[in-house]
Amino acid sequence: MTVHSKKKDLIKRILVCMAIAALIILMPCAGPAYASQSSSYVVEYEEDDYILVRNEETGYEILVDDEAGLLTYDEQKQLIEVMKECTDYGFIFFVSTDEDNFPSVDDFAQDYYRSRVPDENGVMLLIDMNFRKIWIYSEGELPYVVTGSKANIIADNIYTYATDGDYYTTARIGFEQIGSVLSGRRIAQPMKYISNVCLAILLSLIINYFFARLVSQKVKPSDAQIMNSIISRFDFSDPTARHTNTTKTYSPRSSSSGSGGSSGGGGGGGGHSSGGHSF
């Protein structure tokens, strides 16, 4: 009984320690997002569900292309205010679509982005109603900042709003977090820490087990060691080889005379990274 409860005590203590450690690491994650006010912006083009705004200072543009009609005009205007912060770093697109002639969300995103500003720095948040996916796509230098896993985290943080049909909140929080990532602030990623904690615990338990097995292995001596420990002599003489018989097996040479298939192609195009979440 006492041994058992002691064990439980210890496990509890370890868990508490880990929880505290996780909290300490999580703490600095939450921080307010603030938009840069200094730059001046010019509306370059505006029609139904399509607004293009330019940051005069950096030359980067904000594009809202709500083809699927998810946002009201007011919401589009408010969203542009949120998106402004990001124009310090690159082009910033909000796109919604219900087009169904692309094999994947990522194909659509790449095609859309590259047909407008190829190879330029930029981030695009795409709500694809056809695949029902939120997709965050980055190009130029930005894939190093808005990495695939960051894109996944952001999409993960906002997908529930999209599930509920609140696309404005989806986009707003999405761009806030993209802004945070671009300006080097940390975004809340609780699931990252929780799942990493669990993974770390399970991994350490298993790795330690293999370590214990390795150390406690009872190693048998090799044949060479045994040979060294005994007294042996070996003499082999008069080697002769006498032919006894011949066998013939049918084994046709492989007929495929190598069509020399040219592999490759593909490649090319700048790198991008993307990630997303269904909703």
Binding site: S229, S232, R233, F236
Partner: peptide
């Protein structure tokens, strides 16, 4: 299209001893 295998008996004289196994 054939694989020809010649089989031999390899003979020899052995005089070996392993003491202390």
């Amino acid at each position: 299209d054939y694989i020809i295998t010649d089989i031999y008996t390899l003979a020899g004289k052995i005089d070996a001893e392993y003491d202390g196994l």
